[in-house]
């Protein structure tokens, strides 16, 4: 709604209908912009323009004129000055993002993406920021942004998986298990999610939640997907827990032998 109102106000401004709202010089220039008399409009605007004392509308008008005339740096300066006064204006932030992207200022681009992603309700803006951070290998910033958006509960399953995997890689198993649990509940059974599901299973083993690990393993097995024949049983055995997945995996006798080999228990009568 706010965005709509902003677009509407800009529309009114540039069409000159804003005459009744913005009297005087600004309206005159808006008409000139509409008539594409950019040089005249710029001349008039600059005659009374003062960076410290001009209205946000005048900054925007000057930026619009500069864009049309191809004065790219001037356009950007005006947008920056405007956004200092109106930091929540997504429309202008997107203009700034485009400038940074084209101009090759990567840091400026990333910072603008962050500002947009935090302001915007569009999931695409978050996707773009997070994908950019991952693609460019800015892993610390990626983790920080993922955590920020996770706290707001707006991450997609794949992003939850990525957050969990980053924690898993960093051996923060509690955090990993928490994020991966949410991924496990919400992600599709597509093969691309398999490594993440497997990481969830392992994170549960790591934090000692074997019961849940078995539930996860069984649920994965039930999918009958080609990757469902993963040897979960051996993973439990590696943690010395032969009581899990016994019936689902190897024959009992073999499981016992394996258990004895991997972690022999003294006095166990089952061990040869």
């Amino acid at each position: 709604m706010i965005r709509f109102l902003k677009y509407l106000s800009l529309y009114l401004l540039f069409l000159g209908i804003g005459y009744a709202l913005v009297p005087g010089q600004t309206e005159k220039i808006a008409v000139q912009i509409k008539e594409q008399k950019y040089h005249e409009a710029r001349k008039h605007l600059l005659a009374s323009f003062e960076e410290d004392d001009s209205s946000p509308e005048e900054f925007l008008q000057l930026a619009e004129i500069a864009e049309q005339l191809g004065f790219v740096e001037e356009m950007h300066r005006m947008h920056e000055a405007y956004i200092e006064r109106s930091p929540d204006d997504l429309w202008v932030l997107r203009k700034i993002e485009l400038y940074h992207r084209l101009a090759g200022d990567f840091r400026g681009y990333v910072e603008t993406l962050k500002a947009i992603a935090r302001l915007s309700d569009e999931p695409e803006d978050r996707d773009k920021l997070l994908a950019t951070l991952q693609f460019e290998g800015l892993y610390e910033e990626e983790l920080s942004e993922l955590s920020f958006f996770e706290a707001k509960g707006v991450l997609k399953p794949q992003q939850l998986g990525r957050l969990g995997m980053l924690h898993f890689q960093g051996e923060r198993m509690e955090e990993a298990a928490a994020a991966l649990a949410r991924h496990h509940e919400s992600a599709s059974l597509a093969p691309k999610h398999w490594p993440v599901r497997l990481a969830y299973f392992h994170s549960l083993l790591e934090i000692g939640d074997f019961l849940r690990a078995e539930t996860v393993a069984l649920s994965l097995r039930e999918t009958k997907e080609p990757w469902a024949d993963f040897d979960f049983r051996s993973e439990f055995l590696r943690y010395g827990r032969d009581e899990y997945m016994r019936e689902a995996e190897v024959p009992e006798g073999l499981a016992t032998i394996l258990s004895c080999v991997i972690r022999p228990k003294e006095g166990d009568q089952d061990c040869p």
Binding site: E67, Q68, G70, V72, M75, L98, L102, A103, G104
Partner: peptide
């Protein structure tokens, strides 16, 4: 943006 081509220099 019609100024876009100005970035050919990159």
């Amino acid at each position: 943006p019609f100024y876009g081509f100005s970035q050919l220099h990159q």
